[in-house]
Design a binder for these strands. Structure first.
Length: 140
DNA sequence: GCCAACGTTGGC
DNA sequence: GCCAACGTTGGC
């Protein structure tokens, strides 16, 4: 299984919006960046991800799961843009802030730290487990 | 609100 | 195919 991180501005699409879509999930639409799109194309149903709030909050707030593999973004007028569907699994016990992540030597190489602008990112299993521990949620 | 980093676009 | 100009993102 692979692990990922999805970043969103809560004012546009936040954790509560994601939760409101329930088990059916929702398209992660609006990505117009090749790197991010290519990561989504590599995702499999059942892969898990962190849901990160950018801007003011800057924290991982929940766990999500891929529930549909890459397909054309229904909101794009250009066929080159694909997206996956994700659904909320559970909120984290303790949000893990960007500051906390930066303070962990084991997490210094995270894409979130190295390239903060990329909105869809891969997460290694070691990073996943480390952050789950900090967040007070099961990594499995 | 500013600015650095980065990606994309379009003229040559 | 290069590169300058521009737009966007997100941390500060």
């Amino acid at each position: 299984m692979a692990y990922w991180l999805f970043k969103s501005e809560p004012s546009t699409w936040g954790w509560d919006d994601q939760v409101s879509k329930g088990a059916a999930g929702e398209e992660w639409d609006g990505v117009r960046n090749y790197q991010a799109r290519n990561f989504m194309r590599a995702m499999k149903v059942g892969d898990k991800g962190f849901f990160y709030h950018s801007q003011k909050e800057k924290a991982i707030v929940g766990l999500v799961e891929i529930c549909a593999e890459a397909h054309p973004d229904s909101k794009a007028d250009d066929p080159r843009w694909d997206c996956v569907d994700i659904r909320a699994l559970e909120p984290v016990q303790h949000p893990v802030t960007l500051d906390q992540i930066k303070a962990e030597p084991e997490l210094a190489d995270m894409v979130l730290v190295r390239n903060s602008r990329l909105s869809v990112q891969p997460v290694t299993e070691a990073e996943w487990r480390h952050i789950c521990k900090m967040a007070g949620v099961s990594a499995d």
